[in-house]
Each structure stands twice: as C-alpha cells, then as structure tokens.
Amino acid sequence: MTAKVLKRKLALRLKRKKRVRGKISGVASCPRVSIFKSNRTIYAQAIDDVTATTLAAADGRKLGIKANKDGAAVLAKEFAASLKAKGIEVAVFDRNGYLYHGVVAAFADALRENGIKL
C-alpha cells in the first residue's frame, strides 16, 4: 500500500476512536477496557478515566501471543484473571477505533466467557 492510503486508514481510525471515546468513560468500579492491536501482537488495559490510571494490563508480547483470534482468546483469559484479582467484574469495552470484527470481537467474547461483564 502507498503511504497515502495508510495515512488515510490511520486518520479514519483516529476519527472513529474520538467518536467512541466521546461516549464512554471508565471509573474504578467499572473501568474502560481498551485494546490495541498491531500486526504482530495485541495489548489490553483497564483504565480508570477519573484518576487517569491503569488498573490492569495484559501484553501479548510478554505472553508470546500472536495477533490472531486464538491469541486474543488467550490474552483475554489472562486479562480476565488479573481483573478478577483486583475485584473487577464489570467493565465498558473500548474498541479503540477498530471494527468490532475478528481479533477485537474474539477478545471481547473471550472476556465475557471468562466472567467479565461488558
């Protein structure tokens, strides 16, 4: 792809990200679960927007997980365990401008299967 196409794709994702973030916010009892995916790995974090702190995080690179649906399910299982350890059962999902499809949807579904209510 050309640089112009990539620049447009990123601009559109940032536009979607701002639109979503204008509608959702996280607090300590119900944090915002944000996902970031690159071509190689995926990351997730639970954020309290009131105090601007990260409550829990999961790094696919440290776990040796690739950025595919199976890797997203494994990362969600680990992330759900860390959320439960902190006493968090309910969260709001921030897809970070990505379409709710593929890896992002697999991550959200796996979080729900592991007992986190989104």
Results as ranks from 00 to 15, higher is better:
residue 16 R to Q: 08
residue 84 K to F: 07
residue 65 I to D: 01
residue 53 T to S: 15
residue 95 R to S: 04
residue 85 A to D: 14
residue 79 F to T: 03
residue 40 R to F: 03
residue 102 G to V: 06
residue 25 S to D: 08
residue 11 A to P: 00
residue 78 E to N: 14
residue 82 S to C: 11
residue 4 K to Y: 02
residue 93 F to L: 12
residue 40 R to C: 06
residue 58 A to Q: 08
residue 55 L to K: 06
residue 14 L to V: 12
residue 38 S to V: 09
residue 34 S to H: 10
residue 70 D to V: 05
residue 24 I to Y: 12
residue 86 K to H: 11
residue 24 I to D: 14
residue 89 E to M: 01
residue 118 L to A: 03
residue 116 I to F: 03
residue 12 L to N: 14
residue 3 A to I: 00
residue 77 K to T: 07
residue 6 L to S: 08
residue 37 K to D: 09
residue 109 D to S: 11
residue 83 L to P: 09
residue 34 S to V: 08
residue 75 L to M: 07
residue 13 R to K: 15
residue 42 I to V: 14
residue 110 A to L: 00
residue 75 L to Q: 12
residue 110 A to V: 02
residue 20 V to F: 01
residue 12 L to V: 15
residue 33 V to W: 01
residue 29 S to R: 13
residue 111 L to I: 10
residue 51 T to L: 15
residue 90 V to S: 12
residue 65 I to R: 04
residue 111 L to Q: 02
residue 45 Q to A: 10
residue 101 H to N: 12
residue 2 T to F: 00
residue 13 R to T: 11
residue 41 T to S: 09
residue 52 A to M: 10
residue 4 K to P: 00
residue 2 T to V: 06
residue 57 A to R: 06
residue 114 N to W: 03
residue 114 N to Q: 06
residue 85 A to R: 14
residue 56 A to N: 05
residue 46 A to W: 04
residue 5 V to S: 07
residue 24 I to S: 13
residue 37 K to R: 15
residue 88 I to L: 08
residue 98 Y to L: 03
residue 21 R to G: 06
residue 13 R to L: 11
residue 107 F to M: 03
residue 8 R to W: 07
residue 36 F to A: 13
residue 57 A to Y: 05
residue 41 T to Y: 02
residue 20 V to W: 07
residue 20 V to P: 12
residue 47 I to E: 05
residue 20 V to M: 13
residue 53 T to C: 15
residue 69 K to Y: 01
residue 84 K to A: 09
residue 18 K to L: 05
residue 25 S to H: 13
residue 51 T to D: 15
residue 6 L to F: 01
residue 37 K to N: 06
residue 102 G to E: 04
residue 59 D to G: 02
residue 99 L to T: 05
residue 5 V to M: 09
residue 47 I to T: 03
